[in-house]
């Protein structure tokens, strides 16, 4: 699974860059040929979309792409990484051979951290590669090229926002002894919490005081800190302070890991785990 996921993020990065260029370019050609009418504001917006492919936009678009897909993939990976140990019964085998429960959890958390790092590095490099490759094919000027410092900052933030979701998936997998439950819970929180939070803030900005303590709003705040966002958010003005948001995410990580640890320590390990 780890290799497959790395392969998938590389493939997806190239594919999406190519599809965006192919799709936008086809529309531009059609407008020029008069096959379809020009959009209300002319072709500027289409050309702006095409500009996302350029290497100088990798920090916003490319890393954003890796971050979005990566969150889902790493939730799946984190839950599987732990949950399969119970399903296969290998957790019980390891304990019977003298492994400690604390050591097991520390090893799992450390390997997930390492994998998240490798994933974001590989994903970001793939996005950079895809941007240069498709720009060359499309004849888009690379301009000043990739801003390494900006891309690194964006990648670090993307890697950081993976962590609470991975910790959540791990904790649920430990509690339920099931990879499936960890995946389901992680994905539900990832998608549903963000939607609910946005809807509540759209209804009444005062709700931001509450939902800003959640994961999704903290993730948005960290992601948008010091960078221009690829996707506009009408509720952006009510996002929490990025530093506070980063602390909130760290606290969530700690809470999820402590809950997993507490359950793992106190559980009788019968059949499976």
């Amino acid at each position: 699974m780890p290799w497959i996921m790395l392969g998938l993020i590389v493939l997806t990065a190239f594919l999406l860059y190519f599809l965006i260029w192919a799709s936008v370019n086809a529309q531009l050609q059609a407008v020029k040929n008069g096959t379809i009418p020009a959009p209300a504001g002319g072709t500027a917006q289409l050309e702006q979309t095409l500009r996302m492919i350029a290497p100088d936009r990798v920090a916003q678009f490319g890393v954003g792409l890796v971050s979005g897909l990566g969150s889902v993939m790493l939730i799946v990976f984190a839950a599987s990484h732990v949950g399969t140990e119970f399903g296969w019964g290998t957790f019980r085998t390891l304990l019977a051979h003298g492994a400690s429960r604390t050591g097991f959890l520390v090893a799992k958390a450390a390997s997930l951290l390492l994998y998240a790092f490798v994933f974001i590095v590989v994903g970001t490099l793939a996005a950079i590669g895809a941007s240069y490759a498709v720009s060359a094919v499309a004849g888009i000027s690379v301009g000043s090229g990739v801003d390494v410092a900006e891309v690194t900052r964006a990648a670090v933030k993307a890697g950081y926002i993976f962590l609470p979701y991975m910790a959540l998936a791990l904790a649920i997998a430990v509690w339920s002894k099931s990879a499936g439950a960890g995946i389901a819970a992680g994905l539900v929180v990832y998608f549903a919490e963000g939607i609910v939070a946005t809807l509540l803030v759209s209804l009444n900005k005062d709700y931001a005081e509450i939902v800003n303590w959640g994961l999704s709003r903290s993730v948005s705040a960290v992601t948008r800190a010091g960078s221009s966002a690829a996707v506009p958010d009408p509720t952006a003005s009510t996002l929490p302070d990025p530093t506070r948001a980063a602390i909130v995410l760290a606290v969530y990580c700690v809470i999820f890991l402590v809950l997993a640890y507490w359950r793992l320590r106190s559980r009788d390990v019968t059949v499976g785990g």
Binding site: W88, G89, T90, T93, A96, H97, V271, G272
Partner: peptide, 17 residues
């Protein structure tokens, strides 16, 4: 951990990766 260093155990259901 010290106690189990002297034990080799095979459980009823043999589970490996």
């Amino acid at each position: 951990e010290e106690a189990l260093a002297g034990v080799g155990a095979m459980l009823e259901v043999t589970s490996f990766y």
